[in-house]
Design a protein around this nucleic acid. Sequence first.
DNA 1: TTGAAAGCGCTACCAG
DNA 2: CTGGTAGCGCTTTCAA
Lengths: 342, 342
Amino acid sequence: MATIKQIAALAGVSRGTVDRVLNNRGIVNAETAAKIKEIAAAVQYSPNKIAKTLAVKKKNIKLGYIMYASTSGNPFFDDVVTGINAKAEELAEYGVSVETRYSEINNVQKQLELMDELVQAGVQGLAITPVNDAAVAEKINELSSAGVPVVTVNSDIDNSARIAYVGSNYEQSGKTAGGLMRLITNGSANVGIVTGSRDVLCHAVRVSAFKKSLAKHCPNVKIVDIAENNDDDFQSFSVTKTLLAAHPEIDALFLAAAGVYGACRAVIELGLQKKVKIISFDCVPSTRKLIQEGVITATIAQQPFKQGALPLEILFNYLGMDIKPASEKYYTDIEIKIRENL
Amino acid sequence: MATIKQIAALAGVSRGTVDRVLNNRGIVNAETAAKIKEIAAAVQYSPNKIAKTLAVKKKNIKLGYIMYASTSGNPFFDDVVTGINAKAEELAEYGVSVETRYSEINNVQKQLELMDELVQAGVQGLAITPVNDAAVAEKINELSSAGVPVVTVNSDIDNSARIAYVGSNYEQSGKTAGGLMRLITNGSANVGIVTGSRDVLCHAVRVSAFKKSLAKHCPNVKIVDIAENNDDDFQSFSVTKTLLAAHPEIDALFLAAAGVYGACRAVIELGLQKKVKIISFDCVPSTRKLIQEGVITATIAQQPFKQGALPLEILFNYLGMDIKPASEKYYTDIEIKIRENL
DNA sequence: TTGAAAGCGCTACCAG
DNA sequence: CTGGTAGCGCTTTCAA
């Protein structure tokens, strides 16, 4: 609990000098620097975060956030935005302002424009749910080189210089879905899969991990067929109906992406809700309701609130507190929700 | 984002006066007080928490913590203690010190002595896992009256003036265990229950909620028998063996308290690990291992780390920041853990 | 290359 | 009843 002031006194120098040595700013006489470092080590100096935070106000840090709009089809992002706003409000006290922009899934051009716009507006750090495209990756690298740290949210982007990723571990969440399927079917079932799109990396990873997990432990669980709904409830309704009609042996569904409500409507319309066991992802209001009604057996949630909030915290620590992210990847918890612990 | 300084300027008074009005300390002329309040409301004054935190150092807050020792049989408390220590270290920066004492389950006398000891040592607030006894409740009330706020942890105590409880919602976690049992048995099973003691309130609540939850939804799940292990692994081993021998029809076990390892050893010794599905509580190292090995199907964890840490935060906020607990009960999350999301 | 001082916003204490 | 001031620990700027 030693302070800079105390160290200064011990070394017989001013606090400014100690500050320079300990934080590598400016130039200090080599001898005094060595002496100060020695003393700091001896008294186990560690900076007081609160004091630092208070002083950081003058920096007037400005952060940018590019998030998918929930109007693009998935109310999951509403909860993420709630997290963003809560954290932004909290950081306001530290003199931090947050500019949020909404982009569309798969619209690369729009996203690039928003990035430019935010940089023009003077943001010193950026959080973004990136479209998985080389052009986006490249712009992230540009920003990084220009000294603007970037944190990816919800989906990561390969070959980019982002300082951290916050979001689900899709591999593990897919495996967990497989584990759940094993438990609720007692290791024997004919499973239909409804996913968003084979082309969306995170959906693909989830599905393949799900399959792998079952293949390993459950020889009697068969994957009958797989359908794509493009994260749209109406498409989801129709492809699920087709899927179930084509394969009357299906007695379990794995809903790997959005469009959960549409798929469940199809099951209900066909009168199969008693027979078909359903596992889904996320816990949006309609999903919650379907769990309460017993249509969905279990869902896997992934801390949307935290996904929204944590990137801002990471950027604030990076820019304001000189704290580098402890890890390159911050995986959210994989939360199994059933009717009783919703 | 208005500050006291700005309000003082607007009102033409000193910051001291504004502080007095806004924090109800000392006496201020009624007119100026009204004026200041009006201005504060107009500019939407809200105190800066960081600045407050920095200034709180001089108070030299001292907190006490009475926790069950994990040597009393349950390694669950190790994780709680980890949470206590982490939070204590964090709070050290705020000038807060924490005195921790370890008590024994069911030892009322010892616990009363420790409470006295900590008060003698000058703690200004206390967190405690109380033995459920009238004498303990009464001493909690004494402390409260004397201005020492108390937070209960892990188990609550009736008719006491504690400012908050942090811990599991035993009713809901019991229900969740019931829900899980329903899912993994497909609603049909002969269940044996191994609990700690019928006399320990939280065990009793869990078990009764478990039963109720099953009775409501699963007519084909029968509770065959119930055994008590007094949270001891050796007793657990022996009573579980007896239980299984007496009821060969048992094909599922609900382990409602500690002694999980002992019960599982019994299952293994009888060669029943393939047949008997097991649901347990908490996620201590031995339980984790048994899940990985497929002996335990699922366990319900309850954020032991948070149970340790949060009470200190509540007390700090109460004493240092004048922030009353937002709620009287802080229930921990009910986390379902299976092999894949351990 | 170094020291001194102001400031972040709030609290507490001493005068008046 | 009120004002002024020092201090919490760190950062930053201005002088020297």
